[in-house]
Design a protein around this nucleic acid. Structure first.
Lengths: 216, 216
DNA sequence: GTCTATAGCAGGATAGAC
DNA sequence: GTCTATCCTGCTATAGAC
């Protein structure tokens, strides 16, 4: 639609499919919708991808995973400046990489939306998501945080904590309209940085962190 | 299927519709699937509910909301024993009400699944969810926790913290298979109580809470 | 590689018998 | 209230012209 439409049909299909799948889910999007958004004909999906499900999987393989790698790279670069990053640096790096990385707002909503959908309703794509991105990222993060943790027995709790951070990132970005509804408050352009600050504070000190910090 | 099938067709439709919608989402479930699971005929949905979307909304009005009220009641009862519950009591009450309340495992997955789906892809039902449940619950929780918060300026952070707690509850229950995949570990029957403990600790002290508590 | 045309089927909804 | 039979739309997928 508002895209500068590359002349490659296959690429246009992937772009539009990603957008539509992330917004409505696999079942709610028709091939007709995709092909007409990509400004091509109905048969194009089957020619280039065989069938609808394979197009969906290709979206993950060819667009979602590469962008996730960018996020991972951003995360590493974000920390590379510091010699001995502490836990709060790492947490901020995660949240920032996801929410204020190299992506545009639309790309980011796409990325998080597809991930959230797969978590909520796994298809074959879930193994791609877990194997190529989630598990490696968990290892990256563990490596960075673990020095601050003494005992090996804490490993499970560290992992659960990483999941907690991810859950907040996914939730705040995706449930943004609902957060607005409940709080009776519009969220402006600074929403993301406020959310990042919240996630970092909450992760570092829990709900008690705010009282203390604010009264300093 | 495995249900003791009440003789009321309308009720059976609601039960099966809720199960299927929560598992696959609105678009992925067909009316035929619902009516055959409810062991009735294709026309029944249109006779009792007019159309498919209205059945979906009725699931929220007649099954989801009442159960959410039960959760709310459980939450209040859980706290009524204590005269001056502290924040950690309140957090445990929330997590326990959602994850170990009066519902069976299936009902609970249903409940959380439908909510997660609405958050991820709002339909008309989202206003029911927010107006009848989310916002009132937020007020309940705020009333309980706020005494520990001094300044009014902290109200927004308190609200965001409540959302953080909810995000973890939704995420850990719903993404359970993914958590297992990433951790390379099966989760037994104690999963829920471990998750509750994690959420309470994390909420109270953030990621740092574990180090301290464990070394005592 | 791109497109039109269409097969073949599953979907939601309805009419009307009982 | 319940059911069967059916309408018709929209779907995925394919065949075959260009």
């Amino acid at each position: 639609m508002t895209h500068p439409a590359p002349d490659n049909t296959r690429e246009r299909l992937l772009i539009q499919a990603e957008l539509l799948f992330s917004r409505k889910g696999f079942a709610a999007v028709s091939v007709r919708e995709i092909t007409s958004a990509a400004d091509t004909n109905l048969a194009a999906v089957n020619y280039h991808f065989g069938n609808k499900m394979n197009l969906y999987l290709s979206v993950f393989k060819e667009r979602w995973v590469p962008r996730a790698q960018e996020i991972r790279k951003f995360f590493k670069n974000f920390l590379s400046g510091k010699n001995h990053p502490d836990t709060s640096d790492v947490v901020r790096a995660i949240a920032t990489a996801f929410l204020e990385g190299t992506m545009t707002d639309d790309e980011q909503r796409c990325q998080i939306g597809l991930m959230q959908r797969e978590l909520a309703h796994p298809t074959e794509a879930i193994s791609i998501v877990v194997d190529e991105v989630l598990r490696p990222m968990h290892h990256d993060i563990q490596k960075q945080i673990r020095p601050s943790f003494s005992k090996k027995a804490d490993l499970e709790q560290l992992t659960l904590s990483i999941f907690s951070i991810i859950s907040m990132i996914l939730y705040f970005e995706f449930a943004r309209p609902v957060v607005s509804l409940v709080m009776n408050q519009e969220f402006d352009s600074q929403y993301k940085s406020r959310v990042i600050d919240h996630i970092v504070s909450f992760t570092m000190n829990g709900i008690n962190g705010f009282k203390e910090e604010k009264t300093i």
